[in-house]
Design a protein around this nucleic acid. Structure first.
Lengths: 243, 243
DNA sequence: TGGACTCTTATTAGTCATACTTAATTGGCG
DNA sequence: CGCCAATTAAGTATGACTAATAAGAGTCCA
């Protein structure tokens, strides 16, 4: 019972709640492949290892099970499932994987998903965006222009993220809107880890302005084309990095 | 208090495990809007109402929380979150919503998502499909041809579903592959509930054959075009139904 | 002899009741 | 108006018990 020192819960940030901390330790470990598919974890063992009660361990396992990361069976234990079973759309799973080893793979998967979704979202946004959303798009596009030179990557990222979020929300499709966080994660990842040593490419900035214009003018086809070019550029960047 | 008395757990199919049964009762109720956003459920009350222990109620709440359907706060209780917060990609949430009241909305959201994803998946499949997958595509396309006349909707559905699943898997993108279940649910929903009184339209069948051909011939552009037509037809069908 | 079938047993998740801790809201008091 | 204490409901811990079920021992029939 000594101190809180022993528990190997050295997560990045201490979540609140014991079960959340356990989750923040187990989730990344599983998604990182530290426990290969088929590995059996017993709840009692987990409770002992992390110095928590079985109650807490069970709750964490329940959540992992709902993410299809593990399967719990009587007389067997908690079995780690193969990656094909995982709920790869779960924001938490995405976060864990982006923080872990196959970060590259995850980033490329998400970028391909973006390339499918965002052009269609842009077309829908052109048809359905409210005046407020049109204004927000223009504003953020101009913000990108203003911050595209002179090492202002962080400010640029803020506008870029807001821009894409707005497009996805304006598409009036809940499934698209939900991908706002994903896109934000991808953009942040790109800025903070790889590429982007220098200022963003001017063509990319121009394309965002074009999307904003096209949406304002209700030109769905043009909005879609411009956005498609944006996402294709993003894919090209990644392919250079990890072919 | 007494209300409808004992455990109103009479879900559609009895899940195994008390907590799963509770989940199968609470999940659909929340996604159906029976508990409006802001509604507060106390775990103790839930435990009493469903005649389970607090432990079980808490585990169910934990899972609902991981789906962002509810938020649990000390001294407040378990608050139902607004729909914008929900994890709409969680297969369980999708199932619940498809079974519930706003089934139509959900079906249209998913169909729009399909229209974004499947054409891109078809293009990637044309580039990356294995010979076995090419063969499977052809086989299922031919199966659709064979079952497209004479009230064989169930058999047709089997081939249709398998076809789309194969395309998504052949795209070699885990995010796309994971949507196989979603597409299956949409196709099944369409066959079993709405439209489709009579045999499927022959143009649709032909388009599937074209996708299979294009993939076999590694013609990404053609595969994408044909698939885009398929998904646009699917959207048109729905818009007629619920404009 | 061998294989298939049944019965037993050991193991681990699942459930329950209870006691206690902690955080946060609320309302009263200075 | 702000601070402090009381209250409330979630969070945690523990121990006892239940229930599946995998696996092995034992049995029967071909």
């Amino acid at each position: 019972m000594s101190g809180q020192g022993a528990a190997p819960v050295g997560g990045p940030a201490r979540e609140r709640g014991l079960h959340a901390r356990l989750l923040a330790s187990l989730g990344p470990a599983i998604t990182a492949g530290e426990y290969p598919p088929g590995t059996v974890l017993r709840t009692e063992e987990l409770a002992a290892r992390y110095e928590v009660s079985r109650t807490v361990a069970r709750e964490a396992v329940r959540v992992l099970e709902s993410m299809h990361l593990v399967e719990s069976r009587r007389r067997v234990g908690v079995t780690v499932l193969p990656a094909e079973e995982w709920n790869v759309y779960d924001p938490q799973v995405i976060t864990w994987r982006l923080a872990g080893a196959d970060r590259g793979r995850q980033l490329r998967s998400l970028t391909v998903l973006r390339s499918a979704v965002e052009p269609v979202a842009a077309r829908l946004a052109a048809e359905l965006a409210t005046p407020e959303e049109c204004a927000a798009l223009t504003e953020h596009a101009l913000g990108m222009v203003a911050t595209s030179r002179g090492q202002q990557l962080e400010n640029y990222l803020v506008h870029d993220t807001a821009f894409h979020r707005t497009v996805l929300r304006a598409s009036r499709n809940e499934m698209f809107a939900r991908l706002g966080d994903v896109v934000a994660a991808v953009l942040a990842g790109r800025t903070h880890h790889e590429v982007m040593f220098s200022d963003p490419r001017q063509e990319a900035v121009t394309l965002h302005v074009q999307v904003a214009e096209a949406v304002r003018e209700r030109d769905g086809a043009r909005a879609e084309r411009a956005m498609r070019t944006i996402t294709e550029d993003a894919m090209a960047e990644l392919d250079v990095l990890a072919p």
